[in-house]
Design a protein around this nucleic acid. Structure first.
Lengths: 285, 285
DNA sequence: TGATCTTACGTTTAGCGTAACAATA
DNA sequence: TATTGTTACGCTAAACGTAAGATCA
């Protein structure tokens, strides 16, 4: 039976060229490597080296053995990772979302439905979410459109409607609705970690500049103290009444009014079932 | 680092269902298996079993680990075989031939050109020889036609011309040449191990019957003592003058007059080069 | 009671490192 | 003389088997 530890010594020898350097690299003594190389020849049943009085080199068979050893070591590493990842997948629900708002509803719902599970979530752009689905890195995806993926269920979830929040003194304050082209050119306060909204703002309002605030406290302070317009949505919770003094004007463009879709492997449809039952009003008080 | 011996115990446990039976199968004690399973869980860093007071079963992760273990063990086995086979291929020349005659010239020539090499040869039908080339089981192939194989050289080698040997009293004895259709219906003595000639005889003379002699001595005895026609070729050595009393009539059909082609990997063209220099007359005395 | 798994214990062995040796550049 | 690979020697730690214990059918 091959021993992977021995094979690792073999590949290290192949990498370094001398037994001494391999020994140093692996933090073991040379005699150990010497013995291992001898033992490997026994195991393979063939000669792997050409030996001089005080030098040793791989022969053609040895090179072949190194090639096989590398493959095997990498396969072993993969096996280990595969099992660990599988185990993790049994104990964690990983969610990749295109925007933060759906997570405000999804995370508490999943936590209470699966109290023993670890819930991991991240906000990513849409292509990255597709990669996560492909690699099965995430079990649940939240996308701003529906998808057709084999073996995946795909259900409409929440609707999010964008509004702009302007001060009463603002040029647009008397409008009852606006479009991105109305807004294009104005500068805005923007939160970070807002998912695909960020890109949408930059694409649809290319003449605008966006003051992205990484820190939540600073963002709120600026909303309070400045007259810079910002955005809100029907899903946003304004628990501090930050926007009380502002006028909320709906943005009517179709892509400013998003339906989120939940995608998950059909084997894991129970996750989606749990989330279907979410009543938005339960949470949004 | 994973230990293949431990993985083997894991798969054996998966196969047998109990630690005791696995231990028995592997000729080790149960406590050893118990400890190994515990150690495997440490190595993987995850739990692989559900344990009762006196029972143990694989959990889902455990099943996944078994799956990975099987793949890894089989990969390790393949690696071992690959290296051994490679080493063997460096020390042996394996030849697959469609007929015996070319080997009479090829084997001595290779033996003297490569005295340190083991020369292994076998006579096979043509499809099997193609498989040998594909799998690189043989380094040298002798076929009754040329082939177009990537990275293979393919050179014409010997010509073999079939004649039928009949007694003077035979109905065909006054003919200066014959075709298979002339011969069809007569019965023949045939040696065994004559490669593709055997099939050719049966295909081209379907009405004939062939008395195949496995034993060389018995074959010669029958040639001497019977008047049954048999075959010879320009390459056959009749050292005992067995055919002295018989009349040799060439068979004129194109497929009874074969050109053998030597095929070998272009990296091993030196083998073919050695054989190109064979002078048939050197050997056929 | 027989079968199963785990733990405990004592022994063995196999692997390791240090040291000594031989050979090279 | 410094470096490299092999061999010898002694020790340690890990692995094994036997035995004992616990639980279940």
């Amino acid at each position: 039976m091959l021993d992977l530890t021995e094979l690792e010594q073999l590949t290290t020898f192949a990498d370094t060229g001398t037994l001494s350097m391999a020994a140093e690299k692996l933090h073991i003594s040379q005699p150990t490597i010497t013995r291992t190389m001898q033992h490997l020849e026994e195991t393979f049943g063939v000669s792997l080296f050409v030996r001089g009085k005080n030098k040793i080199m791989l022969n053609d068979t040895g090179l072949k053995a190194v090639e096989q050893a590398r493959q095997l070591l990498s396969a072993a590493d993969n096996a280990l990772k595969t099992v660990k990842a599988f185990d993790k997948s049994l104990h964690t629900i990983t969610i990749s979302s295109c925007a933060p708002a759906p997570l405000w509803y999804v995370l508490p719902a999943l936590s209470s439905a699966y109290p023993d599970m670890t819930i991991a979530s991240s906000i990513k752009n849409v292509p990255a979410i597709y990669e996560d689905l492909d690699s099965e890195f995430c079990q649940l995806a939240i996308l701003p459109h529906n998808i057709q993926y084999d073996h995946y269920v795909n259900i409409p979830f929440l609707k999010e409607n964008l509004s702009v929040c302007v001060a009463a003194s603002h040029a647009l304050s008397d409008k009852s609705s606006v479009t991105f082209s109305d807004l294009n050119g104005f500068n805005f306060l923007l939160g970070s970690e807002i998912g695909f909204w960020d890109e949408m703002c930059r694409v649809r309002m290319p003449a605008s500049r966006f003051l992205v605030q990484t820190n939540q406290f600073e963002f709120e302070e600026l909303v309070r103290e400045s007259s810079l317009p910002c955005f809100t949505t029907n899903l946003a919770k304004d628990s501090q009444n930050l926007l009380a003094d502002r006028i909320k004007i709906p943005v009517t463009d179709p892509d400013a009014n998003v339906t989120y879709y939940l995608a998950c492997h059909s084997q894991l449809i129970s996750y989606a079932e749990v989330l279907k039952r979410i009543d938005v009003n339960d949470i949004k008080e």
